[in-house]
Write a protein that binds this DNA or RNA. Structure first.
Length: 292
DNA sequence: CAGCTTACCTGCCGGC
DNA sequence: TGCCGGCAGGTAAGCT
């Protein structure tokens, strides 16, 4: 389940394999992969002949700026992957994959080398679209807040925005318009580190607590990034098909029944926002006025 | 308008 | 063995 550290790992892996390449061909093999595009817009036409000039990211979104000034905007959703299959030997059939959604044919003009880029997506929550004039920053991302790895991330503004919300603190963490890049795994980890229950009313938290929470998000992101991301199954892998190992370090997420690494109380799992929340009932006390 | 719910989707797993 | 419900969850649209 890709959150910011996983997306950043993919972004870094993608960069040397696509930057400077010219797009020679585009095959869309599943309609949902480009569903964001307005009807009648030709996705392939906007890509063919263009050179990819970079790989950028904000939160969990990535975009590939193109020489035209447009950008190829993409989100991995739950199960999106970029992969670069080995070219088939002479006489061998073209390789394929049951979750193949989009295929790009690339040329490196510097070396004349051809390559194939796959966008795989089992659950089809991810996808790609063309952001017209979006090379600098796609207008589709105007509502997405800066993430803690962004040099222009404004801690004070983020803390103020979090404290302005009259909802459970976990709901705010998962809201990508406030601080982007946080998903269910890292929300649970950051809350555990800060000893905050997920249903605490964000507007009732002290400023220092929220500063500490955002710092915990930042450090858990940094640590996960060093480990190459988190993976529980084969749904998240980097462009080489390898998964990260941060899951060995998780204190709360998916640890129900196991002892809290801080106090030994068994970690609990509870339903919140139609998904699971993992917390230590001793370290993270249920608030008197919970906001579910 | 802020807060909250629901739809989207596939594969796996446990229960019967 | 095979069917079925539950679960995994990021995003955005559509509610109240």
């Amino acid at each position: 389940m890709p959150e910011l550290p996983e997306v950043e790992t993919v972004r870094a892996g993608l960069t040397p394999r696509v930057v400077g390449r010219r797009i020679l061909g585009v095959d869309v093999l599943h309609l949902r992969a480009t569903r964001r595009q307005a009807e009648g817009f030709d996705f392939a036409d906007a890509l063919i002949g263009q050179t990819i000039t970079g790989v950028s990211r904000r939160g969990k979104y990535m975009w590939l700026p193109l020489s035209s000034g447009d950008a190829l905007l993409t989100h991995l959703g739950m199960s999106g992957q970029f992969r670069f299959p080995e070219p088939p030997g002479p006489g061998d059939p073209e390789p394929t994959h049951s979750h193949l959604r989009v295929r790009l044919r690339l040329l490196d003009p510097a070396t004349g080398q051809l390559s194939t880029c796959w966008f795989l997506d089992q659950r089809t929550f991810g996808g790609m679209s063309i952001s017209v004039d979006g090379a600098e920053l796609p207008h589709e991302l105007a509502h997405i807040g800066r993430d803690p790895l962004d040099p222009l991330f404004d801690l004070g503004a983020a803390v103020a925005k979090i404290r302005s919300r009259h909802v459970g603190i976990k709901r705010v963490l998962l809201d990508q318009t406030v601080v982007s890049g946080i998903g269910n795994i890292y929300a649970d980890e950051a809350l555990w580190r800060t000893r905050l229950h997920f249903a605490r009313d964000a507007s009732l938290l002290r400023r220092g607590q929220v500063v500490e929470l955002v710092a915990a998000v930042s450090s858990v992101f940094d640590e996960a990034l060093l480990a190459g991301g988190t993976s529980f199954d084969s749904l998240y892998v980097n462009v080489n098909g390898e998964s990260g190992y941060f899951d060995r370090t998780l204190a709360a997420y998916g640890q129900q029944g196991r002892p809290c690494p801080r106090c030994g109380t068994p970690i609990r799992r509870a339903a919140f926002m139609n998904r699971s929340s993992h917390y230590c009932p001793h370290c993270q006390r249920t608030p008197r006025a919970p906001r579910w």
